[in-house]
Amino acid sequence: MHIPDGVFESPVIVSTSVLGALGLAYACSRLGDQLRERTIALMGSTAAFIFAAQMVNFPLFPLPISGHLLGGVLAAVLLGPWAGAGVIAAVLLVQCLLFQDGGLTALGANFLNMGLIGSVGGYAIYSPIQRAFGGRKGVLIGAMLASWFAVILASGAFAIELAASGNRADFFRVFGLITLVHAGIGLGEAIITGLVLRVILQTRPDLIGDSVESPARGIKSWGKVALGGFAVAAAVAIFLAPFASSEKDGLEYVGTAMSFLNEEAPAVVASPIPGYAMPGLQNYEGLATATAGLVGTAIVFLAGVSMASVFTSTVTKVALDEV
């Protein structure tokens, strides 16, 4: 997910850098108001944790690649959307400058995708869901669904940036492939975010603030709900985008890449290929992507509900009341 140098053309580099810098400046100005003693400690350890967690890759079986946590929603739930974006900016800066992970000229795009869309966009989805369910249950389910959608949104933004760099001919195929891959990353993201937040909600709910105690509340601001709804709609549109492609020649993009690999280096990549040639799915890339979207959302929601069930059990309640 960390875009390297040389992938984008100059206009995309300039525009994403300007947008990223403006977003960062706004996030920092919002941070200046709420920067208290404890916030710095929490921001520093959240950034360190996300930095460490991103070093751990989880395999995306059956694809021959792996993904890692992005952490935008996790940071936003702990710290609020703008501080969350600031944390992601710190992580990206350290990775780029000290460890050469992610290109310097792609820093703006990486921050746009993972910081602004990941944290601020993710929070816009999280907030109404959290209010609807209320309490710790709402925090967990909201954060997990928001992580899932935020990863998809970030991957869509990456596909658009790539297309703006001139790769328009293959736009929908690239789009479909990137979304499919990120559906897997999104599942991992949602599960890890949920697991970490569950422990925090069980032992130190005060870190997440006053939203934990409040029961389910009605809608306070329709504007915020609309913003969250818009973000979800955009994510859904990303899943449906491959349908808009006039050519229905399936995972041809992957095919092109893999057949090229086949000619050059058959021994190395021969084994993963049969995984792509799933009979029946070959000609329905749009269907595959849309199915991934639907199934993924259902899985994340069910996982969230089952993980949140720990908060409604009487045992936990009694234990926490005694504290």
């Binding site: 941070l31 920067l35 944790f49």
Partner: peptide, 17 residues
């Protein structure tokens, strides 16, 4: 911006912790 620098410095400290 100063808030970001403070976060970076504290992050650097926290990684060792």
């Amino acid at each position: 911006p100063k808030p970001l620098v403070a976060t970076l410095q504290f992050m650097y400290r926290s990684v060792f912790i």
